[in-house]
Design a protein around this nucleic acid. Structure first.
Lengths: 151, 151
DNA sequence: TATTGTTATACTCTATAACTATA
DNA sequence: TATAGTTATAGAGTATAACAATA
């Protein structure tokens, strides 16, 4: 168990290999997270979409797709599901009738609030098993990881 | 662009929300990485599997599946592809004829070595755009992220 | 009877291409 | 003619269930 960490640390020491080590860690963790999503009826993408919509406010399908780095047709399906569940509202754009205005519904907000408390069970448990210093490292890393995708 | 980072940082300040912020960052980056994999003919899972096999040495299908957190039938398919490409060898187990012994072939090793140089173009470019301090943060985070999946 | 691996099958997620309706 | 969104379709990738061979 310790072996993989040491190798990763060794790889990450060189600037050239940081990308490689980081990519492997991130992809493996993402796969693990994906396998732990049984708690809620929403897929991770649906949840992330709802969260993004809450954070950035109302927007159209295309803009939301760009935020979540998926193609518009994919976002159409995600939104259709969220709308059917009553978590997202769809209103006509005031001046451009081609566009729709998507927003998180009160039910969606409630789900997000409730979900923030009870989700991430697996990850939170793993985080608890880390040392305070390791948690500090991840706390500092979270916004940097986010910046990687938005820069 | 700055907004999302600040929100993420805010969320991550509370211990209860670190898991949430980290999960969103990791999943978004993973999706972004997935979309940048056009460089090589191998999928990211195939590449990660080959790399794991090189790191941890020869093993069977089940063990490799456990390492990569996929089910055995999925690993069977990944391995079949790698074997067909001549990147992995399949030998009979010396004492248990149910098992097979998978190992990275010389061609597989060459591909990994070559790949380490030319892959991660997108991520390396993004990393370059970060400050030295931010890179330090990620360098420290990589092994911790890895630990999350192996602990 | 339990275990290793495979085959058969289906589901989820995402993409591209073609279409509708507005601008 | 260009743009926002949808529908239709296809392709990865992964899972579960059933099966084969061996222990």
């Amino acid at each position: 168990m310790r072996y993989a960490n040491e190798v990763t640390a060794t790889l990450a020491r060189s600037d050239a290999a940081l990308a490689s080590a980081l990519r492997m860690s991130v992809l493996r963790l993402a796969r693990r997270l994906r396998s732990e999503r049984a708690d809620t009826s929403l897929s991770l993408t649906q949840l992330a979409t709802l969260s993004t919509l809450e954070r950035h406010g109302a927007m159209g399908v295309g803009e939301l797709a760009a935020h979540e780095r998926v193609q518009p047709p994919s976002m159409t399906r995600v939104v259709a599901c969220l709308e059917q569940l009553g978590l997202v509202t769809r209103d006509p754009h005031p001046s451009d009738r081609r566009q729709v205005v998507l927003a998180v519904s009160p039910a969606g907000r409630a789900l997000l609030a409730e979900d923030r408390r009870r989700r991430d069970v697996w990850l939170a448990q793993r985080l608890k098993e880390l040392s305070p210093h390791e948690r500090e490292v991840l706390r500092a890393a979270a916004p940097v990881l986010e910046r990687l995708t938005t820069a």
